[in-house]
Design a protein around this nucleic acid. Structure first.
Lengths: 357, 357
DNA sequence: GTGTGGAACCAAACCGGTTTGAGCGACGGG
DNA sequence: CCCGTCGCTCAAACCGGTTTGGTTCCACAC
């Protein structure tokens, strides 16, 4: 069982003290060039790598950032955001030798709070990412302040002591609405995300504002929860309406795809009878039937920006918020001009409902 | 800036030495009951939490496990496995105060190897999970042995010095094939995963063996890569065949869903003209059109089992492999008896292709 | 010759826990 | 009464780095 070499081994091999080795390896002044070369050679020779644990202890830092993923279990596998976000975070962290520590909580708020609390008390991370901000004062903000744990929020909440990485979702949603209106739609519904979340609320507001901005009356909306099942239910409610919309803007792709399915099952053709737009631009969006017009969201870029911001915050005690490039609409084939007279459900019990072209 | 209390503070408050506090907090014998009570009270009073960093240093352990996610960037958001797997791992780790450290590599093998190497050299983790095993001697096995990094493999590779957490995928695939044959299908194709991976290979072999076991001739297969685009391409190749299959077994849901779309675009009705089965049972599987018959895979349970096994391995130096309950088929509506005479492509340029019922 | 300054280096303290070896008082047995 | 044992506690060493406060040595100015 060969022990990996320590700084003392290097010092012995180079004939200097531990302190000098430390200075040499960290490029600090006060080490003679030839000494430094000798030390570096010895370190390379021995295959020395500084112990992360020891550095963490003496620096009183973890050299790691934390992410608490709070999601109901059934949504975890379907959520496209976290994996891409994590990938973005990691590319930045790997560059600077830091690590990402993950916690998954599927329970409620108590469990989530315990997650952050443990991160702070154990000193496992130097800062955390805060996703899924809640409107009206997210309780985690106060918690993290109490715990003195630096944080970066994804999307700016109502009020926050922390820097935010903001992704302009409004532009993409507005583009979707304008695209639909340009096709001739006038009655455009929305299947929302949970309204207690900043992003759920923000997307709904963007949809409302876009309609209002075009001088159109408010459209019908149905509450979704970002799950496929929730999206399907919401879609049924919208379509059962006496005057159903000719187009529906969904708060995410998962619900939109479930919505397409519901429409099919009701015998509606997409986009002939009903136009549909999503949000996220998941990999599947381009491969469902019909391919989904949706708003592209750069979760990876968000991860990178958030990581850079949080690193800076941890390092220097302050960091500025970042505004990412606005989201863009990706037009595919789930949107088209409405049938004249708007969508209407086909006669009940249709044996051979029309399909999309 | 209030410093968080250390063990020395507790010792002072309780009027004992650091060592005694350590013994008391770790439930080790040799501390008088009243002394222990006094120490615990002092610790609670001060809000003491042992520093993870210091424990890690003195134990020469990280109290963390690592996972290297190697995926091309575009697949990261669509892969249902990792999030659920991670959730399973985390539930076990949280119980014992350990953490999960993540590394994401989107590049090639060099980058992936560097990931494991860094984990080992930095001493950031005590062990790692090995997913996506390659057939024919995964090079990571030798690497990890060289690095002396304990590991648990997901699926047993050809030969391995490490314990494995095995999920019986064969049973589910066989059930899918038997289900299709029971419906009357005789020509059953397969869209594979990458054959350099144990799970890609294993699923294909299971499909082949199931056909052979039922006395049927080999079916046509097309190489996929677990991506939607790859699944779509493979589906087109299968269906363009002179004698296309009446049913296709896909190696994962993502490709199966893309396959449904391709079939729709070719004017085929699912399941009327073509039956389709997937693998994974993603959230979306039940919400596409038609709902997908697929093999349920318990990624969460796999995560839990893998975490328990790896913890045991790290703790005691050895752990036994685990066999999880076999995968099961979930029958939905993408499978049905074949049209008499088997599937045939409709006349070209069909303006109003039939749709599913 | 002495004083001064800076470069190079070292020894020791420190981060905050765990672990070891020894000390001490009480108690029981011979 | 003495000794061995046991139960309890402490001081010190240790994990492997970083950082501080000297110390040594040499060049140069006065």
């Amino acid at each position: 069982m060969r022990r990996s070499p320590t700084i003392a081994d290097v010092a012995r091999a180079a004939g200097v003290s531990k302190g000098t080795v430390s200075f040499a390896l960290n490029d600090r002044p006060g080490v003679a060039p030839e000494t430094k070369a000798r030390i570096l050679a010895a370190a390379a020779e021995l295959g020395f790598h500084p112990s992360h644990r020891a550095r963490a202890l003496s620096h009183s830092r973890a050299f790691a950032l934390g992410l608490v993923m709070a999601r109901p279990a059934e949504l975890l596998g379907a959520d496209p955001f976290f994996p891409a976000f994590i990938a973005g975070v990691e590319t930045e962290l790997a560059k600077v030798g830091q690590a990402l520590v993950l916690r998954v909580v599927t329970g409620g708020w108590d469990e989530e709070a315990a997650g952050y609390r443990q991160f702070a008390e154990d000193g496992r991370v130097d800062g955390v990412f805060l996703s899924d901000l809640r409107v009206g004062g997210d309780p985690r903000l106060a918690l993290l302040e109490e715990l003195r744990l630096p944080a970066v929020t994804l999307q700016p909440p109502d009020a926050s002591p922390f820097p935010a990485v903001a992704l302009d979702e409004r532009t993409g949603i507005r583009a979707a609405v304008e695209h639909l209106v340009g096709l001739g739609h006038r009655r455009i519904g929305h299947v929302t995300g949970p309204q207690e979340f900043v992003h759920g609320r923000g997307r709904r507001d963007a949809w409302r504002d876009a309609l209002a901005g075009l001088g159109l009356p408010p459209g019908p909306e149905a509450a979704g929860d970002f799950t496929a099942a929730g999206g399907a239910d919401a879609t049924r409610r919208l379509l059962r309406d006496g005057e159903p919309p000719t187009a529906i803007v969904y708060a995410n792709d998962l619900m939109a795809i479930a919505g397409i399915t519901v429409a099919h099952e009701l015998g509606l053709s997409i986009p002939g009878d009903l136009s549909i737009t999503g949000f996220d631009d998941t990999e599947l969006a381009g491969h469902v039937h019909p391919p989904l017009t949706t708003v592209h969201m750069d979760a990876l870029g968000m991860g990178r920006a958030a990581a850079r911001t949080l690193l800076r915050l941890v390092e220097s005690g302050s960091a500025e918020s970042i505004e990412l490039p606005p989201t863009e609409l990706v037009v595919r084939r789930s949107t088209a001009p409405p049938r004249s007279g708007g969508a209407s459900l086909p006669p009940p019990r249709a044996e051979h409902p029309r399909s999309s072209s």
